[in-house]
Amino acid sequence: MNVKKFSDAMSELDTKYIDEALNYKKKAKRRNWIKWGAMAACLCFVVVGSILFNLHNLTDFNAMIGKTSVDTVAIMTSVPVDEWTAWYQQINLSEKELEKYVGDEYLKTDSRTWYFPDGVNNLKYLICKDAGDSLTLWMFISFATEEVKTYTYGDVLSIIYGVHGADDIVSITTSPFQANNTDEGKAIQKKIGTHTYTDCEAINMFYNIVKDVICYGADGEDPANETRFSYSFSTENSDKLSSGESTYGTRRISIEFKNGTILDSWKYSALSGSFFEYGGIYTEPLEENDVYALNDIFGIK
Protein backbone atom coordinates (compact mmCIF):
# COMPACT_ATOMS: atom_id res chain seq x y z
CA MET A 1 0.00 0.00 0.00
CA ASN A 2 1.28 3.45 -0.75
CA VAL A 3 0.21 6.91 0.19
CA LYS A 4 -1.91 7.31 -2.92
CA LYS A 5 -3.84 4.17 -2.06
CA PHE A 6 -4.28 5.53 1.46
CA SER A 7 -5.42 8.85 0.06
CA ASP A 8 -7.89 7.12 -2.26
CA ALA A 9 -9.19 5.08 0.65
CA MET A 10 -9.66 8.21 2.72
CA SER A 11 -11.75 9.61 -0.13
CA GLU A 12 -13.97 6.53 0.07
CA LEU A 13 -14.60 6.81 3.82
CA ASP A 14 -18.17 6.88 5.00
CA THR A 15 -19.42 10.46 5.18
CA LYS A 16 -20.39 9.98 8.82
CA TYR A 17 -16.72 10.51 9.76
CA ILE A 18 -16.62 13.71 7.73
CA ASP A 19 -19.85 14.91 9.35
CA GLU A 20 -18.41 14.19 12.77
CA ALA A 21 -15.21 16.12 12.03
CA LEU A 22 -17.16 19.02 10.53
CA ASN A 23 -19.66 19.29 13.37
CA TYR A 24 -17.36 18.64 16.32
CA LYS A 25 -17.60 21.30 18.99
CA LYS A 26 -15.11 21.77 21.79
CA LYS A 27 -16.47 20.51 25.10
CA ALA A 28 -16.59 23.97 26.73
CA LYS A 29 -18.77 25.34 23.97
CA ARG A 30 -21.24 22.54 23.76
CA ARG A 31 -23.75 23.97 26.15
CA ASN A 32 -27.02 25.15 24.72
CA TRP A 33 -28.14 27.49 27.46
CA ILE A 34 -31.73 27.48 26.41
CA LYS A 35 -31.88 23.69 26.43
CA TRP A 36 -29.99 23.28 29.73
CA GLY A 37 -31.92 26.09 31.32
CA ALA A 38 -35.23 24.41 30.50
CA MET A 39 -34.00 21.02 31.70
CA ALA A 40 -32.62 22.53 34.89
CA ALA A 41 -35.98 24.24 35.59
CA CYS A 42 -37.88 20.98 35.19
CA LEU A 43 -35.44 18.67 36.97
CA CYS A 44 -33.73 20.89 39.49
CA PHE A 45 -35.12 19.26 42.63
CA VAL A 46 -34.19 15.82 41.28
CA VAL A 47 -30.68 17.01 40.41
CA VAL A 48 -30.16 18.64 43.79
CA GLY A 49 -31.40 15.57 45.56
CA SER A 50 -29.15 13.37 43.49
CA ILE A 51 -26.16 15.61 44.09
CA LEU A 52 -26.76 15.68 47.82
CA PHE A 53 -27.08 11.90 47.88
CA ASN A 54 -23.94 11.41 45.83
CA LEU A 55 -21.99 14.02 47.74
CA HIS A 56 -22.70 12.10 50.89
CA ASN A 57 -21.34 8.94 49.31
CA LEU A 58 -18.53 10.84 47.59
CA THR A 59 -17.44 12.22 50.91
CA ASP A 60 -17.89 8.81 52.43
CA PHE A 61 -15.43 6.87 50.21
CA ASN A 62 -13.05 9.77 49.66
CA ALA A 63 -13.20 10.63 53.34
CA MET A 64 -12.43 7.04 54.21
CA ILE A 65 -9.53 6.76 51.78
CA GLY A 66 -8.27 10.17 52.88
CA LYS A 67 -8.07 9.05 56.48
CA THR A 68 -6.50 5.73 55.60
CA SER A 69 -2.76 5.58 55.15
CA VAL A 70 -2.73 4.11 51.65
CA ASP A 71 -1.00 0.78 52.12
CA THR A 72 -0.07 -0.60 48.72
CA VAL A 73 0.46 -4.27 48.02
CA ALA A 74 3.21 -5.29 45.60
CA ILE A 75 0.69 -6.58 43.10
CA MET A 76 -0.09 -4.85 39.80
CA THR A 77 -2.73 -5.58 37.24
CA SER A 78 -3.77 -4.15 33.91
CA VAL A 79 -7.23 -2.78 33.20
CA PRO A 80 -8.55 -1.62 29.81
CA VAL A 81 -9.40 2.07 30.15
CA ASP A 82 -10.65 4.01 27.15
CA GLU A 83 -8.20 3.13 24.35
CA TRP A 84 -5.44 2.49 26.87
CA THR A 85 -4.17 -0.28 29.08
CA ALA A 86 -3.86 1.13 32.58
CA TRP A 87 -1.69 -0.25 35.36
CA TYR A 88 -3.35 -0.46 38.77
CA GLN A 89 -1.75 -1.39 42.09
CA GLN A 90 -3.61 -3.23 44.82
CA ILE A 91 -4.42 -1.36 48.03
CA ASN A 92 -4.57 -3.22 51.30
CA LEU A 93 -8.14 -2.84 52.58
CA SER A 94 -10.33 -5.47 54.16
CA GLU A 95 -13.12 -7.01 52.16
CA LYS A 96 -15.54 -6.25 54.97
CA GLU A 97 -14.68 -2.56 54.66
CA LEU A 98 -14.81 -2.64 50.86
CA GLU A 99 -18.28 -4.19 50.71
CA LYS A 100 -19.76 -0.88 51.85
CA TYR A 101 -18.27 1.01 48.93
CA VAL A 102 -19.04 -1.10 45.85
CA GLY A 103 -20.74 1.21 43.37
CA ASP A 104 -21.73 1.05 39.70
CA GLU A 105 -20.17 -1.50 37.40
CA TYR A 106 -17.38 -0.11 35.23
CA LEU A 107 -16.16 -3.14 33.28
CA LYS A 108 -16.76 -6.85 33.09
CA THR A 109 -14.11 -9.25 31.81
CA ASP A 110 -14.06 -13.03 31.65
CA SER A 111 -12.82 -13.50 35.20
CA ARG A 112 -13.32 -10.15 36.91
CA THR A 113 -15.85 -7.39 37.34
CA TRP A 114 -14.67 -3.87 38.05
CA TYR A 115 -16.73 -1.32 39.98
CA PHE A 116 -16.49 2.37 40.74
CA PRO A 117 -16.41 3.11 44.46
CA ASP A 118 -19.93 4.10 45.40
CA GLY A 119 -20.67 7.74 44.57
CA VAL A 120 -17.42 8.14 42.63
CA ASN A 121 -17.30 8.57 38.85
CA ASN A 122 -13.58 8.74 38.17
CA LEU A 123 -11.05 5.99 37.72
CA LYS A 124 -8.43 6.73 40.36
CA TYR A 125 -9.73 3.78 42.39
CA LEU A 126 -11.52 0.66 41.21
CA ILE A 127 -12.97 -2.23 43.18
CA CYS A 128 -12.50 -5.67 41.68
CA LYS A 129 -14.66 -8.71 42.24
CA ASP A 130 -13.02 -11.90 41.06
CA ALA A 131 -14.56 -15.19 40.00
CA GLY A 132 -14.74 -16.26 43.63
CA ASP A 133 -16.58 -13.02 44.60
CA SER A 134 -13.57 -11.73 46.57
CA LEU A 135 -13.24 -7.95 46.62
CA THR A 136 -10.00 -5.98 46.28
CA LEU A 137 -9.26 -2.26 45.94
CA TRP A 138 -6.94 -0.94 43.24
CA MET A 139 -5.35 2.45 42.57
CA PHE A 140 -4.30 3.87 39.17
CA ILE A 141 -0.54 4.07 38.64
CA SER A 142 0.15 4.75 34.96
CA PHE A 143 -0.76 3.88 31.41
CA ALA A 144 1.13 1.07 29.69
CA THR A 145 3.50 2.44 27.09
CA GLU A 146 4.78 -0.72 25.42
CA GLU A 147 2.94 -0.21 22.13
CA VAL A 148 2.68 3.54 22.24
CA LYS A 149 5.65 5.21 23.79
CA THR A 150 4.14 8.19 25.63
CA TYR A 151 1.03 9.80 27.00
CA THR A 152 0.43 13.18 28.59
CA TYR A 153 -0.57 14.23 32.06
CA GLY A 154 -3.57 15.77 30.31
CA ASP A 155 -4.61 12.23 29.35
CA VAL A 156 -4.33 11.14 32.99
CA LEU A 157 -6.31 14.14 34.19
CA SER A 158 -9.13 13.74 31.69
CA ILE A 159 -9.38 9.95 31.42
CA ILE A 160 -8.66 8.89 35.00
CA TYR A 161 -9.65 11.91 37.08
CA GLY A 162 -12.41 13.35 34.86
CA VAL A 163 -10.64 16.74 34.83
CA HIS A 164 -10.94 18.65 31.56
CA GLY A 165 -9.82 22.13 32.51
CA ALA A 166 -8.42 24.39 35.19
CA ASP A 167 -11.99 25.06 36.36
CA ASP A 168 -12.12 21.49 37.66
CA ILE A 169 -9.27 22.17 40.10
CA VAL A 170 -9.99 23.49 43.60
CA SER A 171 -6.47 23.82 44.96
CA ILE A 172 -2.84 22.85 44.57
CA THR A 173 -0.83 22.08 47.68
CA THR A 174 2.95 21.79 47.75
CA SER A 175 4.98 20.33 50.55
CA PRO A 176 8.65 19.49 51.06
CA PHE A 177 10.08 16.33 49.54
CA GLN A 178 11.22 14.45 52.60
CA ALA A 179 14.24 12.63 51.24
CA ASN A 180 16.80 14.23 53.54
CA ASN A 181 16.43 13.24 57.18
CA THR A 182 19.49 15.03 58.50
CA ASP A 183 18.91 17.89 60.92
CA GLU A 184 19.87 20.31 58.19
CA GLY A 185 17.53 18.62 55.74
CA LYS A 186 14.67 18.79 58.21
CA ALA A 187 15.46 22.45 58.81
CA ILE A 188 15.13 23.16 55.08
CA GLN A 189 11.90 21.21 54.91
CA LYS A 190 10.53 23.18 57.84
CA LYS A 191 11.57 26.41 56.17
CA ILE A 192 9.88 25.43 52.90
CA GLY A 193 6.67 24.48 54.64
CA THR A 194 3.36 23.53 53.10
CA HIS A 195 1.48 25.96 50.88
CA THR A 196 -1.94 25.78 49.25
CA TYR A 197 -2.73 27.76 46.10
CA THR A 198 -6.33 28.52 45.22
CA ASP A 199 -6.08 31.61 43.04
CA CYS A 200 -7.30 31.17 39.48
CA GLU A 201 -4.18 32.57 37.87
CA ALA A 202 -1.86 30.07 39.57
CA ILE A 203 -4.22 27.17 38.92
CA ASN A 204 -4.68 28.13 35.26
CA MET A 205 -0.96 28.44 34.72
CA PHE A 206 -0.27 25.15 36.48
CA TYR A 207 -2.95 23.29 34.53
CA ASN A 208 -1.83 24.67 31.16
CA ILE A 209 1.71 23.44 31.88
CA VAL A 210 0.97 20.01 33.31
CA LYS A 211 -1.65 18.97 30.75
CA ASP A 212 1.07 18.83 28.09
CA VAL A 213 3.68 17.06 30.21
CA ILE A 214 4.75 13.98 28.27
CA CYS A 215 4.98 10.88 30.43
CA TYR A 216 6.92 7.73 29.66
CA GLY A 217 5.00 5.61 32.17
CA ALA A 218 6.42 2.86 34.32
CA ASP A 219 7.59 0.99 31.21
CA GLY A 220 9.66 3.88 29.99
CA GLU A 221 13.24 4.90 30.60
CA ASP A 222 14.51 7.95 32.40
CA PRO A 223 15.30 10.58 29.76
CA ALA A 224 18.51 12.58 30.22
CA ASN A 225 17.96 13.63 33.81
CA GLU A 226 20.91 15.95 34.08
CA THR A 227 20.87 18.82 36.52
CA ARG A 228 19.68 21.69 34.39
CA PHE A 229 19.20 24.39 36.98
CA SER A 230 20.77 25.45 40.24
CA TYR A 231 19.28 27.35 43.13
CA SER A 232 20.47 29.50 45.92
CA PHE A 233 19.05 29.20 49.40
CA SER A 234 20.15 30.39 52.77
CA THR A 235 21.08 28.09 55.56
CA GLU A 236 24.07 28.23 57.80
CA ASN A 237 25.20 24.76 57.01
CA SER A 238 24.53 24.65 53.27
CA ASP A 239 27.96 23.30 52.46
CA LYS A 240 27.42 20.34 54.77
CA LEU A 241 24.11 19.30 53.34
CA SER A 242 23.72 16.24 51.24
CA SER A 243 21.50 16.84 48.22
CA GLY A 244 20.65 20.24 49.65
CA GLU A 245 19.67 21.75 46.37
CA SER A 246 17.55 18.74 45.58
CA THR A 247 15.79 19.03 48.93
CA TYR A 248 15.19 22.71 48.46
CA GLY A 249 14.14 22.50 44.82
CA THR A 250 11.73 19.55 45.01
CA ARG A 251 8.06 19.68 45.93
CA ARG A 252 5.43 17.05 46.52
CA ILE A 253 2.26 18.12 44.74
CA SER A 254 -1.28 17.40 45.87
CA ILE A 255 -4.15 18.55 43.66
CA GLU A 256 -7.73 18.66 44.89
CA PHE A 257 -10.42 18.44 42.20
CA LYS A 258 -14.01 19.60 42.30
CA ASN A 259 -15.22 16.01 42.07
CA GLY A 260 -13.67 15.37 45.48
CA THR A 261 -10.70 13.34 44.25
CA ILE A 262 -7.13 14.14 45.15
CA LEU A 263 -4.11 13.48 42.93
CA ASP A 264 -1.05 13.23 45.14
CA SER A 265 1.44 11.11 43.25
CA TRP A 266 3.28 13.89 41.37
CA LYS A 267 6.54 15.46 42.48
CA TYR A 268 8.19 18.45 40.85
CA SER A 269 11.96 18.88 40.63
CA ALA A 270 13.09 22.42 39.91
CA LEU A 271 16.65 21.12 39.64
CA SER A 272 15.97 18.93 36.61
CA GLY A 273 12.96 20.94 35.47
CA SER A 274 10.61 17.97 35.35
CA PHE A 275 7.89 16.05 37.10
CA PHE A 276 8.37 12.53 38.39
CA GLU A 277 6.56 9.90 40.42
CA TYR A 278 7.55 7.02 42.62
CA GLY A 279 8.00 3.71 40.89
CA GLY A 280 10.21 5.03 38.11
CA ILE A 281 7.59 6.99 36.20
CA TYR A 282 9.49 9.61 34.24
CA THR A 283 8.40 12.58 32.19
CA GLU A 284 9.87 14.72 29.45
CA PRO A 285 11.76 17.72 30.91
CA LEU A 286 9.80 20.96 30.77
CA GLU A 287 10.54 23.98 28.61
CA GLU A 288 12.56 26.59 30.48
CA ASN A 289 9.73 29.10 30.55
CA ASP A 290 7.48 26.51 32.16
CA VAL A 291 10.12 25.76 34.80
CA TYR A 292 10.41 29.44 35.66
CA ALA A 293 6.63 29.80 35.77
CA LEU A 294 6.23 26.86 38.16
CA ASN A 295 9.09 28.13 40.32
CA ASP A 296 7.33 31.49 40.57
CA ILE A 297 4.14 29.81 41.69
CA PHE A 298 5.90 27.59 44.22
CA GLY A 299 8.28 30.26 45.50
CA ILE A 300 11.44 28.42 44.43
CA LYS A 301 14.19 30.95 43.91
Binding site: F6, D8, A9, E12, L13, D14, Y17, E20, A21
Partner: peptide, 27 residues
Protein backbone atom coordinates in the same frame (compact mmCIF):
# COMPACT_ATOMS: atom_id res chain seq x y z
CA UNK B 1 -6.29 -4.08 -2.19
CA UNK B 2 -9.17 -2.02 -3.36
CA UNK B 3 -9.45 1.49 -2.04
CA UNK B 4 -12.98 0.77 -0.87
CA UNK B 5 -11.88 -2.31 1.08
CA UNK B 6 -9.11 -0.28 2.65
CA UNK B 7 -11.62 2.47 3.42
CA UNK B 8 -13.80 -0.09 5.18
CA UNK B 9 -10.83 -1.24 7.28
CA UNK B 10 -9.80 2.31 8.11
CA UNK B 11 -13.40 3.02 9.07
CA UNK B 12 -13.38 0.05 11.44
CA UNK B 13 -10.14 1.34 12.92
CA UNK B 14 -11.65 4.80 13.40
CA UNK B 15 -14.52 3.20 15.30
CA UNK B 16 -12.01 1.97 17.90
CA UNK B 17 -10.90 5.53 18.65
CA UNK B 18 -12.48 8.05 20.98
CA UNK B 19 -14.51 10.83 19.37
CA UNK B 20 -11.75 13.36 19.94
CA UNK B 21 -9.03 11.19 18.43
CA UNK B 22 -11.23 10.28 15.49
CA UNK B 23 -11.85 13.94 14.76
CA UNK B 24 -8.14 14.73 15.10
CA UNK B 25 -7.29 11.94 12.64
CA UNK B 26 -9.85 13.16 10.10
CA UNK B 27 -8.80 16.78 10.46
Amino acid sequence: IEARELARIIGEFLDTLTLENRVIFMR
